[in-house]
Design a protein around this nucleic acid. Structure first.
Lengths: 206, 206
DNA sequence: TTGACAGGTTATCACTTGATTACTTATGGT
DNA sequence: ACCATAAGTAATCAAGTGATAACCTGTCAA
C-alpha cells in the first residue's frame, strides 16, 4: 500500500516517472493479477494520481501488456545471460545447474514470475493471450538455442511452471501446512530452497 | 395482479438448482478467473437472478472456493480412478500412459483445469491460497500413492502444469501463430494432441 | 522577467459490482 | 381447500472502476 519510493516533492522527467510507475505496476499486478488490480492501486503504489497512470499508458490493458512483456523479456534475458557467459553443453548437468541458478536469481524478485503467470492465465483476454503465447514461445526459443532439443527444453520449462505455480500459491511461506506440501516444496525447489526461504521471510516482514 | 413480468419458469429443488448454478459458475470462472468474473456473469450463465446466486453461496469468495475445491477434487478423482482400475507399476511406461489418458479425459472439459489454474494464481487472496495449497498437496498425494517416489510425482505434475498453462493461454487454438509455438505444442501434448485439437475446434465453433 | 510547455492534480462521470431488503408465488402436506 | 414454507425475483445501495476534462504549477530558454 505504501509507496516504495516516497512521493517526490519535485518533478521528474516523463521517462523517469514512467519507469517508476511501470515498476509500481509490476508489483501491483504481481499481487492481484490483471482483473484484480485497479489503476488506482497502481497509482497509490507509485505515489501518483490515478488519472496520471491512465494518461501515461492509455488504458489499463496497455499498461498490463507493457508490464507483462517487460517481465517475460527480463526472464528470457536472465536465461540468455547464462548462455552467453560461456558455451553451454546440453549433456552437462553442471550447465543445466547454471540455468537453475538464473532462476534462483529471478526468485529474489518474484514479481516478474508472478506477472508472467498472471498473464498466462489471463489468456481469455485476446490481447493478453497473444502476448502470453509470444512470451512463452520466446522463452522456449532461448532454451532451445542451447541445442538441447525440444523435449529437454520442454522439461525445463515445465519444471519452471511448477515452481511458478507454487510461488503464486505462496507455498514456501506455508511450507509447514502439511507434510505433503513440505515434501513437494523440498523436492521441487531442491538446491534453490535456501534462496526461496530467504525471499519468503523478507517478503513476510517487509 | 401486476403481471408485468412473464410467467415464472419452472421451479427446482434447492439441491438441483444449487448444482446447476455451481456448474455455471465453473464455466464462468474458467473463462475469466476469480476477480474477473462477476456474480452477475455467473447468474446469467445459470439463468437465474444475481441476488439468488449470492443467497445460495453467501459470498462470491465462498462460491469460488466451492467451485475450486470441486474442480481439484474431480481432477484428483480422475487420476485415482486410473490407479484403482488395476495395479500401477511406476516403472512401467504403459501405466504412466494410462495416467496421461486420464489427463486427456480432463482436457475434454477444460473448465476444471482452468478453474484450478485460476485458483493457483489467485493465491494472493488468503482463503484461495490455502485451498490452492491443499488442492495441490492432494493431487501430489494421489500421484505419490503409486509408490513412484517424490521426484517422479513432481515431474508428472510439472508436465501437467505446463499443459494447463498452454491451455489457459489458448495455445492449441493458435498453434499456427509461430513455428516455436507449434513445436512446443507438438512436443508438450504428444499423444494427447488429437484430443486437444478436437476440444479446441469444438470450443471455437461454440 | 516572463511565458510557454511539460509534468502533474482535482473534480467528475457513467458504469459495474457485491450485497441487502422486501416482496411474490409455486408447491406439498394436512 | 388452504396456508406455511421454500423457491425465486425486483428494487435498491454504497463502494469501486476506468476514463475524461479541466485546471494548476515548476522549470527553463530567450
Amino acid at each position: 500500500m505504501s509507496p516504495r519510493t516516497a512521493p517526490t516533492a519535485s518533478r521528474m522527467s516523463a521517462e523517469d516517472r514512467r519507469q517508476l510507475v511501470l515498476d509500481a505496476a509490476t508489483r501491483a499486478f504481481a499481487r492481484s493479477g490483471y482483473a484484480g488490480t485497479s489503476t488506482d492501486a497502481v497509482a497509490k503504489e507509485a505515489g501518483v494520481s490515478q488519472p496520471y497512470v491512465v494518461r501515461i499508458f492509455g488504458t489499463k490493458l496497455d499498461l498490463f501488456l507493457e508490464v507483462f512483456t517487460h517481465a517475460t523479456g527480463r526472464i528470457a534475458a536472465a536465461f540468455q545471460r547464462v548462455l552467453a557467459e560461456r558455451p553451454f553443453d546440453p549433456d552437462d548437468d553442471a550447465d543445466w545447474a547454471r540455468l537453475g541458478d538464473a532462476y534462483t536469481e529471478l526468485l529474489a524478485d518474484r514479481d516478474f514470475l508472478l506477472v508472467m503467470m498472471h498473464g498466462f492465465t489471463a489468456g481469455g483476454t485476446a490481447e493478453i493471450g497473444a502476448a502470453a503465447r509470444a512470451g512463452m514461445a520466446g522463452i522456449f526459443d532461448v532454451i532451445r538455442s542451447t541445442g538441447c532439443g525440444d523435449e529437454r527444453a520442454r522439461e525445463f520449462i515445465a519444471q519452471g511452471m511448477l515452481l511458478n505455480v507454487m510461488i503464486a500459491m505462496q507455498a514456501p511461506e506455508h511450507a509447514q501446512e502439511s507434510a505433503s506440501l513440505t515434501a513437494l516444496i523440498t523436492c521441487a525447489f531442491g538446491d534453490t530452497l535456501p534462496a526461496v526461504a530467504a525471499a519468503s521471510t523478507a517478503r513476510q516482514s517487509g
